[in-house]
């Protein structure tokens, strides 16, 4: 039996997108594999005060075990960033999933039902559009924290951030899916399904949904970049994920304290990593958008 490679057709003839895809795979492996071999630097056993402020390997006093230096608590930046990246990726992916499921469900219902349901859901979307997703995530975060109070665990904080970003992102998905559904629901195959007596739920789920997935995937990729930025920003501002289980944003927040005193590497490495991650996701998202948009395909 021949080994089947995954379908890479969308990446053919696009070196930038292909490079981004490779880069993303490398980053994901880095975030998943390093924590398997290195102890958690944010637990008490993981840090070593003796090594604090070790500079990168090429500077005087560099340590070959810590090629990128160490932070104020003596955490190896290579390990710390792997844990941070893992948190950022987890939050980003789950936030997009929540936005997708929430927005997808509302968009499907709005598009299929039409009439008053449609108007209600889309007006809600309009009201929400008055607020940029980032600001909304901050507001939701603030409100939830006000309700449950200061005493929140890391897991709770993470859940809150995921929910805040996910809820802030649903409008995009809802609008896209709704407009696709509006096109699809008048197609013959939907009428056929309706005549054969299938329920509305089955028609939406089994027949319409598969046909509107392509634009959703594109938006999901673009949203992933935005969600990662949103999480990093929240954590940087100190209202996201706490330093006990830091994401890239929290690492940068911590590093920013030492920028003035010359320990630039604590902030700059996570900054660069975040930049590479976001640019790679965006390049890939842009490319997928062009690829799945038949109007643009074949041009340029």
């Amino acid at each position: 039996m021949r080994l089947r490679l995954p379908r890479l057709a969308p990446l053919r003839g696009a070196p930038g997108a292909a490079l981004s895809a490779v880069l993303l795979v490398v980053l994901v492996l880095y975030a998943l594999l390093v924590p398997l071999v290195a102890p958690d630097p944010f637990s008490l056993g993981g840090l070593s005060i003796m090594d604090s402020f070790t500079p990168p390997i090429w500077a005087e006093g560099g340590n070959p075990v810590m090629p990128l230096g160490a932070d104020d608590q003596g955490r190896n930046m290579v390990t710390a960033m792997a844990y941070g990246l893992r948190t950022s990726l987890i939050v980003g992916v789950f936030a997009v999933l929540i936005g997708l499921v929430l927005g997808g469900a509302l968009g499907l219902v709005a598009g299929y039902a039409g009439g008053r349901t449609d108007a209600l859901i889309m007006r809600l979307a309009d009201v929400q559009l008055a607020y940029p997703a980032l600001l909304l995530a901050m507001i939701i975060d603030g409100i939830v924290n006000a309700t449950i109070g200061e005493a929140r665990s890391t897991l709770q904080a993470m859940t809150i951030v995921i929910l805040a970003i996910g809820v802030a992102f649903w409008v995009q998905f809802a609008r896209t899916i709704r407009s696709s559904v509006l096109v699809e629901r008048n197609q013959d195959y939907v009428s056929a399904a309706r005549i054969t007596g299938r329920s509305a739920g089955a028609i939406i789920g089994r027949h319409i949904l598969p046909n509107v997935m392509a634009p959703v995937l594109v938006i999901a990729t673009t949203s992933l970049g935005l969600a990662i930025i949103a999480e990093a920003t929240l954590s940087f501002l100190g209202i996201g994920i706490p330093l006990t289980h830091p994401s890239l944003g929290a690492l940068i927040r911590n590093g920013a304290n030492y920028l003035q005193s010359g320990e630039w590497w604590i902030a700059i490495w996570p900054c660069l990593l975040l930049m590479v991650l976001v640019v790679a996701v965006n390049v890939l998202g842009d490319h997928l958008r062009d690829y799945y948009n038949p109007r643009l395909r074949g041009r340029s």
């Binding site: 970049g225 930025i229 990093a232 920003t233 940087f236 501002l237 944003g249 940068i252 920013a256 920028l259 003035q260 010359g262 630039w264 902030a267 700059i268 900054c271 975040l274 930049m275 976001v278 640019v279 965006n282």
Partner: peptide
């Protein structure tokens, strides 16, 4: 300008022009 998070730009500017 479109992709970089705002605070990263700020940190980089501080690192270069301030520090």
């Amino acid at each position: 300008g479109v992709t970089l998070p705002n605070f990263v730009v700020g940190i980089l500017l501080i690192a270069i022009f301030s520090v």
